[in-house]
Amino acid sequence: MSGLGEIPGVLNVLLLDSDGKRVAVKYYDQKMKTLAQQMKFEKEVFTKTQRNNARGEAEIALLDHHVVVYKFCADLHFFVTAHVDENEIIVATVLNAFFDAVSLLLRGVVEKRAALENLDLVLLTIDELIDGGIILETDPNAIANRVTMRGCESEATPLAEQSLSSALAIAREQLTRNLLR
């Protein structure tokens, strides 16, 4: 919990595939700045957890100075790690928020292919979940809304200034988005 006092901190957020390769990762741990350290850590985390069945409830493991909470879905492995003394349930809350928000944004198709196709959404989810190690939001719906910038479109440019076709295009886009959510 370096520098943050008693505030619950998240060290790293990882999304790996079923081979342990990166899909999207974000490191907040100041001790893991180099790529080599990060790769080593990912390998350790992956090998330590891969044999467990974490497809239903989130699972947990201890790794050196990290508590690792994880959840698997299809060929995706979700991890949130924190300081070893952190309250496990808080870490699990963050993981669930991460997972549920991604699941919402990928419209329930939580697999590597979909995640890569919508990598922008996944990266934004992590950005809306944690800010510099501090938990920013834990409500998956709120996260998903912020990722898709809901509520901005109509105000961005007044409708009158747009050509009819572009207005229609925006309307259509918004409609599909709302329908599929």
Partner: peptide, 12 residues
């Protein structure tokens, strides 16, 4: 509990 996290947290 049915949740592994809770069991782990408690046993630790």
């Amino acid at each position: 509990s049915s949740k592994p996290i809770l069991r782990f947290a408690a046993i630790r």
